[in-house]
Every structure is written in C-alpha cells, then in structure tokens.
Design a protein around this nucleic acid. Structure first.
Lengths: 143, 143
DNA sequence: CGGTTTAGGTCAATCATGTTGACACAGTAG
DNA sequence: CTACTGTGTCAACATGATTGACCTAAACCG
C-alpha cells in the first residue's frame, strides 16, 4: 500500500494532468469550431503534418480509432483541400497523405496555439523543470 | 516566430501529453466498462472523494459540464449506493454529496490504478524530474 | 494460375456523452 | 411578496465513437 501523504501528492498530480489536458485542448477546439471541424480533424492534420506520406492505415494505428471513425473527417479534409492523397508508388493500394499548403497553414495555426501555451509553462517553470517534465512524460507514455 | 528546433521539441511535448493522457485514462476506463459505467462516473467519484460534502453545483463547476450531463450519471451512482446525498444544514436546498463505503472502495480501485501508473513514471524518472514535472504542470494549468 | 491477405471505402445500427432550451419546485434573501 | 438560487427533469439534437457486414482493388504466395 502507498503511504497516505504520497497518495495525496499523487492525487494532486492526477488532477493537474486532468486540468492541464483540458486547458490544453480547448483553445484549438474553439478555433476548429468556427470552421465546423472537431478535435479529430486537428489530430489528423497534426499527424499527417508530423509524418508526411503516412498511409490511412498508419494514421489508424496512430490514432487508435476505427477506420469508420477516421473515414468521414478525413474525407472532409480531402474535400476541403487541406489534405492531399497520392497513390503509393510501391503499393498502389496505399494512399500517402500530405498536407496541402492551406492544410499546413491551418495546422500551424492550431498547433501554434498549443506550442505557445506549452512554451509559456516551460518559461515560467525553467529549463531544469522542463527536462524533468519531459523525462516523466516519456516514462508515462512507455509505462 | 519560434525557432524551428524549438518547434520540434514542443511538438514532441504535445505528443507526449496526448499519448500520456490517453494511456493514463484507459486502465480505469476498462475497469468501469465492466460495471457499465463511464469516465464521467469516475470523475464524479473522484471529486466527491476529494471534496466530501461538495454540492451538486460545486461538482458542476469543477467538472465544467451542464447539469443535465451530470444528472444522469450522478443519479445512477446514488441508486447504486456508491454516493450518498445529505440535505444541507445551512441551506436546505443543497445536497451534500459523499462516497459510501462501497463508493470509496471503487474510487480507490480506479484511482489506485492511476496512482500506480504515475508512481512508476516518477520512480523511473527520479525525484528531481518529478518536481520539475509538477512545476510545469502547475504552470500549464494556470496559464 | 488461384486463393488469401491487405489497404481502403462505405452502409447501417447503435451507444456514449455532451449540448441548449424550457419548465418545475423548494428554499433563501431582499 | 418577489427575485434569485439549487436542484431535477423532459425533449431535441449534435458529435464522435463503436461493431458488423460487405465491397473493390492490389499484392502476396504457393
């Protein structure tokens, strides 16, 4: 069993993770809302920007959603000209996804808001704290 | 404009936050699923446990949802005997909410999984990293 | 060659979680 | 008495997800 004081510390940590995540997503959410898009669209734009030429399957694995859940928003982004799909050169079944210039613009805008938010927190906490934060986050993702 | 290298670092940070949060919630989610409950129920149990005698309004403000969204799951928890409501002593309109013994048991089980997860990450990253992590999280929540 | 697997797409039914609006009732505060 | 507050509930709707079933086309394999 974990010590009671320690439990209180861990609860504080749980709460900060909850509130931080909530505060972190709601700015881009509000930007997207104005265009009739949702958080999924941001995630799709984000990961395509991060991994240009990712396949639909690759995106599915990253996002951990069903292909039906991905299909509609992705098609929307294609229709809006924010994402482009090119037929795979090796395997003609696969679609390699990329951001168009306009897609890059929107993605930069959305992610930029989050980057500013994070940067402000890092600035206020200092570089040592930032490194510690990164170390803990890596352990959290891996564990 | 932020430096490109810095942008890449910030993107890494964004991703770790996304994946960490996702990994963090899915264990309790799976436990709840077996009882036919959802993440909302966990949040309700959590915050009532944290602030015994909180009112319905207090819970609404904490969770930042509409009262209609809160009502159904809260009623469910009351009916299941996991939460008890007592009439306020000063203001008889308010309901002060508490966990029953069984509610405490379930809450401890759910949050315990998250505490173990966090503790493991802190153990692996070390105490200095933990402090840095906390500092950044506080700044993130406040910003 | 032919059979199986893989990448992708789509339709349908369903569920979970949230919203807003409207209304009710009891209790408090002035 | 009136106004506001805390709580509850009904209805309509939106969003984002699920599973299951079925389809095409391409690749892979024996």
């Amino acid at each position: 069993m974990i010590d009671l004081n320690r439990q209180a510390q861990l609860r504080t940590a749980i709460e900060s993770l909850y509130f931080a995540y909530r505060g972190f997503t709601d700015r881009p959410d509000r930007m997207l809302e104005r265009r009739g898009l949702g958080r999924v669209h941001h995630r799709i734009l984000y990961f395509i920007g991060r991994r240009p030429d990712v396949s639909v399957k690759g995106l599915l694995d990253l996002l951990a959603v069903s292909k039906q859940a991905l299909n509609a928003p992705l098609r929307q982004l294609l229709e809006m000209g924010l994402v482009a799909a090119v037929e795979g050169t090796e395997d003609r079944r696969v679609k390699n996804l990329r951001l168009t210039a306009e897609g890059q613009r929107l993605e930069a805008e959305l992610t930029g808001a989050q980057m500013k938010h994070l940067q402000a927190a890092f600035d206020s906490a200092g570089p040592a704290a930032e490194q510690g934060w990164r170390d803990v986050m890596v352990a959290l993702v891996e564990g």
